[in-house]
C-alpha cells in the first residue's frame, strides 16, 4: 500500500519530508498520474497541491517577485502581479497542456521534475531567477536556477528539502523579453525546442542579454556564447548572424521521435537571430 499524506502547513510539509524522504512529492500530479501505471508504486505520496502558503505571486520589499512553488499555471495566467516582467512566463504557461493541466500543474512541479522539455524552465534562465529551498533542519536557502538543475532530470534539492518559491530580481528599465516554443503542433504539445530571452539596449547596443534554451541539451541551458556574441553590439543583421553562429557552436541537439538534431539547430539559430532583429524594433 502507498501511504498518502496531505500536510496543511509548510512546517508540517517539511516535517513529513524530513521523516519520509523516500516519499514521492505530488505538486499537481500532471507528471505523476500520467506515468503512474508504468512505474512501481512509491511507498508514499505527499500531496502539496493547494498548499496555501506556497501558492501565489507577490512583490517583495526589494522589488523582486516571489512565486510560490504551488502556484499553478492558471494562477500565473490570472495574476495581476508583475504582469510585464512575467509576460514570457505567461506565454509559456498558456501553451502547457489544456485548461485542466494548467489548473493542476505547478511551477514547483515543473522545476523538480526537471525535464529537459519542461516549458517554464528556460524562462527562469532568461529572467535570472533563483530557486528557494527549505528544510525542517536547516531553514531556507536560495540557488540561482543555473545552478539548481545539475543534470538530466537532476536537481540540487536535498532529500529533506522542498522547493518553496522562485524569486525574480527587479528588471532593469527597458528590458525586452522574447519567448518562442516550437512544438509538435500549436497546442497540447511537447516542445521540440524553446527559447526564452531578455535583453535591453543601452546607447543602441545590446546590454545584459540572457538566453534560456529548452529541449536543446540534457537540461535547460543558458546560451552563454550567444550572449557574449550579442553583448555590446548593435541589434543588426551582422549581430544576428554572429549570434546564430555562436549558438550553432555551443549546442548539439539530438534526434528523437519528436524532431531531428538538424531541425532543432537550424530553428534555434533562426530564432536567436529573430530575437536580435526584434531588439531593433520599437517596443
Amino acid at each position: 500500500m502507498t501511504a498518502y499524506l496531505r500536510p496543511n502547513t509548510l512546517e508540517e510539509a517539511l516535517a513529513v519530508r524530513e521523516a519520509h524522504p523516500e516519499y514521492t512529492i505530488l505538486a499537481g500530479g500532471t507528471d505523476l498520474l500520467v506515468s503512474g501505471h508504468r512505474v512501481p508504486p512509491p511507498p508514499g505520496i505527499v500531496d502539496l497541491f493547494d498548499l496555501r502558503p506556497l501558492r501565489g505571486i507577490a512583490r517583495d520589499g526589494d522589488g523582486s517577485l516571489r512565486l510560490g512553488a504551488a502556484t499553478t499555471y492558471l494562477d500565473v495566467l490570472s495574476s495581476d502581479t508583475g504582469r510585464e516582467e512575467l509576460s514570457i512566463l505567461r506565454a509559456a504557461a498558456r501553451e502547457i497542456g489544456a485548461l485542466q493541466i494548467q489548473a493542476r500543474g505547478t511551477l514547483g512541479g515543473n522545476l523538480v521534475t526537471s525535464s529537459p522539455v519542461g516549458d517554464t524552465l528556460p524562462v527562469w534562465l532568461a529572467l535570472g531567477a533563483e530557486v528557494e529551498l527549505s528544510s525542517a533542519g536547516r531553514g531556507a536557502r536560495r540557488v540561482a536556477y543555473d545552478a539548481f538543475c545539475t543534470g538530466y532530470r537532476q536537481t540540487d534539492m536535498a532529500p529533506d528539502e522542498l522547493v518553496t518559491a522562485v524569486t525574480i530580481p527587479p528588471p532593469a528599465p527597458g528590458t525586452r523579453r522574447f519567448w518562442r516554443k516550437v512544438g509538435t503542433r500549436r497546442a497540447q504539445s511537447i516542445s521540440k525546442l524553446m527559447i526564452a530571452a531578455t535583453a535591453r539596449l543601452e546607447n543602441g547596443l545590446i546590454a545584459e542579454p540572457r538566453i534560456g534554451l529548452g529541449a536543446l541539451a540534457d537540461r535547460p541551458i543558458r546560451g552563454v556564447a550567444v550572449e557574449r556574441a550579442m553583448a555590446g553590439r548593435p541589434p543588426d543583421e551582422d549581430t544576428a548572424a554572429r549570434a546564430a553562429r555562436a549558438l550553432a557552436a555551443e549546442i548539439t541537439p539530438i534526434d528523437d521521435v519528436r524532431s531531428s538534431a538538424d531541425y532543432r539547430l537550424t530553428v534555434a539559430t533562426n530564432l536567436v537571430a529573430r530575437f536580435v532583429r526584434l531588439l531593433a524594433e520599437p517596443a
Partner: peptide, 23 residues
C-alpha cells in the same frame, strides 16, 4: 507514425500527433 524494425515508436497521444482545434 514512426516505426523501428516494424514496431511503432510513438505509441502515445503526446507523440503520435493529430491536430487540435488550435491547428
Amino acid at each position: 507514425v514512426a516505426y523501428e524494425r516494424g514496431s511503432v515508436v510513438n505509441r502515445r497521444m503526446t507523440d503520435c500527433i493529430v491536430p487540435t482545434f488550435a491547428d
